[in-house]
Design a protein around this nucleic acid. Structure first.
Length: 797
DNA sequence: AGTCACGTCGTTTTT
DNA sequence: CGACGTGACT
């Protein structure tokens, strides 16, 4: 294979590097993807590496698919045998194969944020915690952080000794994990953490994959978290035929584009690469092939305000190009209109097509005005990320049916659809079933099968029976060899009268929702026809769970795209509108509030990512007044604009659009001044970033992120009820009296033989104090069960 | 059990 | 502003 003559010397070196760790520091637009694909092709063609021995990790599924296609074009054969996927997808594949190591079944479900919340809700309810103070998110975000750092429930307390509620969180974490396992389910973070745990527990699994993945490539390495770091470190260790250890790990990244700190990404992974891998070769790619000098200068100008460990300066041969357009609009609608006018004008004059443009913003909520205005201007567009197709209710409902059929232990899925379509099985009934399931250490579906004997459920027993019969019937079908998924889903939907139900529920939206269902059937058909191995329900469901909005196929229609700056990572566009350049929005008030230095540095990198998406022309803009959460905000100009103006004013052409063009005119502007307290003391209004105003400024009143332990000052004039009515929620005593049971009252202890009406005789191996009850672990002949003492009716014998 | 009206609360960013 | 949960009513 000829090395592509268009590669520059550094790129060439990266492509031809063979053994040992390699770090490629690839600035934005430096031809990184070309290097990776050529490198893979070179390994295969010139070094005779079998594609079977290559693992390439990308950031999105779409990028994986593209990479695979591009490699396939470069090599003669075998590209199909490579693993090219995201961390999460790769982990699922590995976990399925060795799931028994963790005590999971291989068809485990993957829980998304909604599922996680449902599960956490049962945990919180079961402990009678104050739901005001302890929301699902409170625990879930802490648990997520812990998992990203490979901290399990048992290590939680010792790892975060200073954290408030450490004990409670640890115990909730423990129960949450146990329940996940009982449901044969993992959440997103588990996919990573459990894979590491699996490799630590099973020599066999680790050796298997070390042997297989002799060459590992990781893209966007700057966004890896601790778990991903550890995973890579474990895998990149191949003992060759001479008994030598090879670590053929190639990571690619750019520390200036690290933007996922909030989900545990640790920039030190890339900064300290040589510490972890002392014999690493480091190659810098600094020539940019994408953007004009003007755009690069602006990007450099901003990013140089961050402290740097690795110095780097992008340069280009492309020439200076057009100046950056910076526009100040009176409000957010005017901003959207200004962008639409520019696009309309260029397209109508034949200077550009819709697909040349991208609108990038900091938060998804900012897409709304653009959505409305673009429709008026008849600009075809696609909004990425707003509502993921697979998160729509009707789609999730169908998927929950499939999960219930596929994974009999997935109680969250079963509970979701128990009464969809309406079959007269209410929340109270479901709660009884759940209690029964928990008490007997069985799954939700299994408990449904006992409906007749559950107290308080008997009335709904017949309805439940027809539900379980339906599911059982489809389970048998799904288990048949050569079962067509498409046909199964179609039959299921017609059995359920699903369309009719949607029409009955809301006739207005029914057509859209039915279209979504049909789209889902198309997707299933597509999966079935294009799947590498056998097309299974579990396989499809996993694919779907890990699918992002950005992963969906591009349509051939010419259109402008709108998305967050995060979603734009790795993409490029001829012309980019980076909108909403305002303090508190970009940088986000959150990042300014909690940890000024680290938070704003990440925002600055995000801004750098946004700017460097543009090839030819960059438009920056801000709105003087912006509707946010139903109120007007007047934010100062973003400090990032200030950083540009300070030393690189020549790069900008500034425009100011007057207020008169706005349909609100000056009127609403005056109105907001009529009640200065209204806008002055509420969150996010009238704040600047001048150092003089940094501390003790008005915006400080809004800087508490946790309201439960901080009462912000409120002007009595606008806040009539400063106190919560203390009588409002008098504690309702729990219906059952298992509140203060002491361990001795159980009547048995560890080591005792006990009997259970369902499982027979067993030995108590552990007793743990739960929130309100004891969780007893018993070894029965049929297996080990964990159960709550209050329900299990265990008797010492 | 299901429906409707009202209050509350909140928004970074995503696999 | 809008999504969502709560509570009263049918």
């Amino acid at each position: 294979m000829d090395i592509d003559r268009s590669l520059n010397p550094e790129q060439r070196e990266a492509v031809m590097h063979r053994y040992g760790p390699l770090l490629i520091l690839a600035g934005a637009g430096s031809g990184k993807t070309r290097v990776i694909t050529h490198r893979i092709a070179y390994l295969i063609q010139e070094y005779n590496v079998s594609p079977y021995n290559i693992l390439a990790i990308t950031f999105t599924n779409k990028a994986a698919k593209e990479m695979k296609d591009r490699v396939a074009q470069l090599v003669d054969y075998g590209a199909d045998n490579m693993w090219v996927s995201t961390f999460h997808s790769a982990c699922v594949k590995m976990l399925r194969r060795f799931s028994h190591v963790l005590g999971y079944e291989d068809n485990f479900s993957i829980y998304d944020t909604d599922d996680q919340k449902s599960l956490m809700r049962t945990v919180i309810k079961g402990r009678n915690l104050d739901p005001k103070r302890y929301r699902e998110k409170y625990f879930l975000s802490r648990i997520s952080m812990a998992k990203n750092e490979l901290i399990g429930p048992d290590n939680y307390k010792s790892s975060y000794p200073r954290s408030a509620d450490a004990e409670l969180i640890a115990s909730v974490y423990r129960e949450y994990q146990d329940r996940l396992k009982a449901n044969n389910a993992m959440d997103f973070d588990d996919l990573l953490m459990n894979t590491v745990v699996m490799f630590r527990e099973s020599e066999e699994a680790l050796t298997y994959y070390r042997n297989r993945f002799r060459y590992i490539l990781v893209d966007e390495y700057q966004d890896t978290n601790r778990a991903q770091f550890e995973l890579v470190r474990l895998l990149a260790h191949y003992v060759n035929d001479n008994g030598e250890v090879e670590c053929n790990l190639c990571v690619v990244g750019d520390d200036d584009q690290s933007i996922y700190g909030f989900r545990g990404a640790d920039i030190r992974n890339i900064l300290d690469f040589e510490k972890t891998y002392p014999d690493a070769v480091v190659i810098k790619l600094e020539e940019n092939y994408r953007s004009t000098e003007t755009i690069l200068d602006a990007a450099n100008e901003i990013i140089k305000n961050n402290p740097h460990v690795r110095e780097k300066k992008l340069w280009t041969k492309l020439g200076s190009g057009t100046p950056i357009t910076y526009t100040v609009y009176p409000d957010d609608l005017a901003e959207a209109r200004g962008v639409a006018e520019e696009i309309r004008d260029q397209v109508d004059n034949g200077k550009a097509v819709y697909g040349d443009f991208a609108v990038l913003y900091r938060t998804n909520a900012q897409s709304r005005p653009f959505e409305a205005i673009f429709a008026n201007f008849k600009i075809p567009c696609r909004i990425i990320g707003a509502v993921n197709f697979y998160q729509r209710k009707e789609v999730k409902d169908v998927l929950a049916y499939l999960k219930t059929i596929d994974n009999g232990l997935d109680g969250i899925a079963t509970r979701r659809i128990l009464n969809i379509p309406r079959r007269g099985i209410g929340e109270t009934t479901a709660a009884h079933v759940q209690e029964y399931a928990d008490g007997n250490g069985i799954g939700f579906f299994e408990a449904l099968l006992d409906a007749k004997s559950i107290p308080g459920v008997s009335r709904a027993a017949a309805k439940i029976a027809s539900f379980t019969e339906l599911i059982t019937r489809y389970r048998m079908r799904a288990a048949e060899a050569g079962c067509s998924l498409k046909k199964l889903v179609r039959d299921l939907l017609s059995d359920l009268d699903f369309e009719e139900e949607l029409r009955r529920e809301d006739p207005d939206s029914a057509d859209d929702r039915i279209a979504n269902i049909n789209e889902l059937i198309n997707a299933i058909t597509y999966y079935e026809e294009n799947s590498d191995g056998p097309a299974t329900l579990s396989g499809y469901l996993a694919d779907v769970s890990l699918m992002t909005d950005a992963d969906t196929e591009e349509t051939s229609e010419d259109h402008t795209v709108l998305m967050t700056v995060h979603s734009a990572k790795g993409l490029e566009f001829n012309q980019v509108f980076l909108v909403g350049m305002e303090e508190n929005l970009f940088p986000s008030s959150m990042s300014i509030d909690d940890e000024e230095i680290r938070g704003v540095a990440e925002e600055r990198r995000l801004c750098y990512v946004g700017i460097t998406r543009a090839r030819r022309h960059l438009f920056l803009s801000r709105a003087s007044r912006r509707m946010l959460r139903g109120e007007n905000n007047f934010n100062a100009e973003s400090r990032f604009i200030g950083e540009l103006k300070k030393n690189a004013r020549h790069l900008l052409t500034e425009k100011r659009i007057s207020d008169s063009g706005s349909p609100f005119g000056g009127q609403s502007y005056r109105n907001s001044y009529d009640s200065p307290f209204e806008s002055g003391f509420k969150k996010g209004s009238y704040s600047g970033y001048d150092s003089s105003a940094k501390r003790g400024s008005l915006s400080d009143f809004s800087s508490s992120s946790d309201r439960s332990d901080f009462t912000p000052y409120k002007n009595p004039a606008i806040s009539a009820k400063p106190y919560e009515n203390p009588y409002k929620k008098a504690a309702v005593p729990a219906p059952k009296n298992f509140g203060n049971a002491s361990e001795s009252s159980l009547g048995f202890t560890v080591g005792d033989r006990v009997s259970h009406e369902r499982f027979g005789t067993g030995t108590v191996t552990n007793i743990v104090k739960g929130g309100r009850d004891f969780e007893v672990t018993v070894e029965f002949p049929s297996g080990t069960k964990k159960m709550l003492a209050a329900f299990a009716k265990l008797r010492k014998i």
